[in-house]
């Protein structure tokens, strides 16, 4: 049974701004899943609150649209209950790195087989243009009227330094590269981070799709993503240019494979058996 683009089609009207980078991500997400022959009922997209999190409503797919910043935690619960399904999180940088920062740190450690796609447009767009964890120093906003004074987070360096099992970067300026990157991330066994540099036509006149096309480079063919020092050099060396592609790979043990060993799963198919308690009760006599 082959999967067709129409399988992912949705009639829910889209509430994004015209020209939003999310359109490129939505199209790439659908294309990646279709090309991977994953039917919508075997995929769960888990999101929080913001513009990125609206994404699964605009395709036909299992959807858990939960709380702001908690999407990764909920997705871990989903994957551990149903590891026969493909679990993907779409989050903004505010949800993933700000409100959900603690979950991000520990998701890297835990290494559950899932993909976190972060739509980084460097602004809190839905709440009307405040600085986000990745807004560059000096950027003037409604709240930071003299310019942002705390330096932006470097999520790629953070993830690589903590041996995140897959770290990749794409941009909505190069949608042609997004599909293969998303496919590789979804196919990778373990926690995959896909950081997408996204344009925001409403709040950011600088980082346009053209800007990202002009300021990014595909990683060279001979780049070795298993070389952590090389990966860190890519993301820590001060540069006006952004590397695109798979930056880092680490084939670490996958949490769900270990946690579910000897446990009958998926958990939705389990029956209720009070006698299981009787066997344990005997140990208290």
């Amino acid at each position: 049974m082959s999967v067709k683009p129409a399988d992912y089609a949705s009639s829910v009207p889209i509430a994004w701004c015209p020209g939003c980078g999310n359109f490129a991500i939505l199209n790439s997400a659908k294309k990646a899943l279709t090309e991977l022959e994953l039917p919508p009922e075997r995929v769960v997209i888990c999101t929080g609150i913001g513009q990125a999190p609206k994404l699964p409503h605009y395709m036909r797919v299992n959807t858990f649209n939960g709380l702001h910043g908690r999407e990764v935690a909920a997705a871990i619960g989903i994957k551990l209950a149903a590891n026969d399904l493909t679990v993907i999180v779409h989050a903004g940088e505010g949800g993933a790195y700000g409100e959900g920062g603690n979950h991000f740190l520990h998701a890297i450690r835990r290494n559950v087989d899932m993909t976190l796609v972060v739509h980084d447009n460097r602004y809190y767009a839905l709440t009307k243009g405040q600085a986000s964890p990745t807004t560059p120093l000096g950027t003037v906003t409604r709240i930071e009227s003299d310019g942002v004074v705390i330096p932006p987070l470097n999520p790629l360096a953070l993830a690589i330094s903590q041996s995140c099992s897959f770290v990749g970067q794409g941009t909505t300026g190069r949608p042609d590269l997004l599909v293969p990157l998303l496919k590789a991330a979804i196919q990778h066994r373990g926690f995959s981070l896909v950081h997408i540099l996204q344009s925001c036509p409403t709040w950011d006149r600088v980082h346009t799709p053209q800007f990202y096309r002009d300021h990014s480079d595909e990683l060279q063919e001979d780049y070795d993503p298993y070389d952590r020092e090389a990966a860190l050099r890519q993301v820590l060396t001060p540069s006006e240019r952004h590397p695109l592609g798979i930056l880092y790979l680490d084939d670490r043990p996958v949490y769900d494979e270990q946690a579910l060993e000897q446990i009958e799963h998926p958990l939705r198919q389990r029956t209720v058996n009070p006698d299981a308690a009787l066997a344990l009760l005997a140990t208290f006599a």
Binding site: V44, C46, F64, G66, L67, R70, A73, A74, A75, I76, G77, I78, L80, A81, A82, L85, N102, H103, L105, H106, P266, L267, R268, Q269, R270, V272
Partner: peptide, 20 residues
């Protein structure tokens, strides 16, 4: 879990996926 917020959201996710 790393904190209680994570705990309850993991529970919500697992329950959505059909776990008790």
């Amino acid at each position: 879990s790393e904190d209680e917020i994570s705990a309850i959201n993991m529970v919500a996710g697992a329950a959505y996926a059909g776990a008790r």
